[in-house]
Amino acid sequence: MELFNKSGALVSSLLVLVGSLIACQAKEDTLPPAPVVEAVAQRLSAHGGAAAERRLREWADQGSIVAKRELGMLYQSKTPRRGEAMRLFEEAARAGDAEAAFQLAEMYHRAAAGTGRGLEKAWPLYAQAAEHRHPQAASRLASLARDGSEEAARWLAATGLK
């Protein structure tokens, strides 16, 4: 009887270990919370590193909106990757990320400098970000609106700057 108890305990322990390994493996496929993604992105921008970029890319491919935004922020300053940055920002903005909407609007606004042709694309993105309480977006809308206009006053009020 004692032999059965010992082997039963061994089998039980083995099953718990296998279950733990399966749980850990399954957990790798889940998306981390936003602060974890942002910490990886911050480490990437501070120290570089292909592993951190690869991890962000995996999370973005799995659907992490924050990872898409953070990759977009990484790529927007790299000329050959600006198109990819815009695509990532667009996907994240469509999913409701205010910072991604603001960053995409800024890219359109900078591209339109002097021509005003990108402003029609930037304006709704600034508005989307401002409506989600993004203060820089609200300030940008106020500065883009005509001085003294009702619309400028509305966006200034949203920033609390009046």
Rank of each mutant, 00 (worst) to 15 (best):
M1Y: 15
E2R: 14
L3I: 13
F4R: 15
N5G: 05
N5E: 14
S7Q: 15
S7Y: 15
S12G: 15
S12Y: 13
S13C: 12
L15Q: 04
L17T: 13
S20K: 04
I22T: 13
C24P: 00
Q25I: 12
A26M: 13
A26Q: 14
E28P: 00
D29L: 10
L31R: 01
P32H: 06
P33K: 09
P35L: 04
V36K: 04
V37Q: 03
E38D: 00
E38L: 09
A41H: 02
A41R: 01
Q42I: 00
R43D: 07
S45C: 03
A50Y: 07
A50V: 13
A52W: 03
R54M: 13
R55A: 11
L56K: 05
L56D: 03
L56Q: 05
L56H: 04
R57P: 00
E58W: 05
A60Y: 04
A60I: 04
A60W: 06
D61E: 15
Q62I: 01
G63M: 09
S64V: 06
S64Q: 01
K68R: 15
R69S: 05
R69W: 05
L71T: 04
L71C: 01
M73I: 08
K78N: 08
K78G: 00
K78P: 00
K78Y: 05
P80Q: 05
R82K: 14
R82V: 11
G83N: 04
A85L: 02
M86A: 08
R87H: 07
F89D: 04
A93V: 01
R94G: 12
A95L: 11
A100L: 10
F102R: 04
F102V: 03
F102H: 12
F102Y: 14
Q103H: 10
L104P: 02
Y108M: 00
R110P: 00
A111Q: 03
A111I: 02
A111P: 00
A112Q: 00
G114R: 11
T115H: 02
G116H: 10
K121G: 02
W123A: 13
Y126N: 03
Q128S: 09
Q128C: 05
A130D: 08
H132T: 08
R133A: 14
H134L: 07
P135C: 06
P135S: 12
A137F: 05
S139V: 07
R140L: 07
S143Q: 13
L144C: 08
A145M: 14
D147V: 10
G148I: 06
S149E: 07
E150P: 06
A152E: 12
W155D: 05
L156K: 14
A158C: 04
T159L: 07
G160L: 09
G160Q: 06
L161Q: 14
L161Y: 03
L161N: 12
K162D: 11
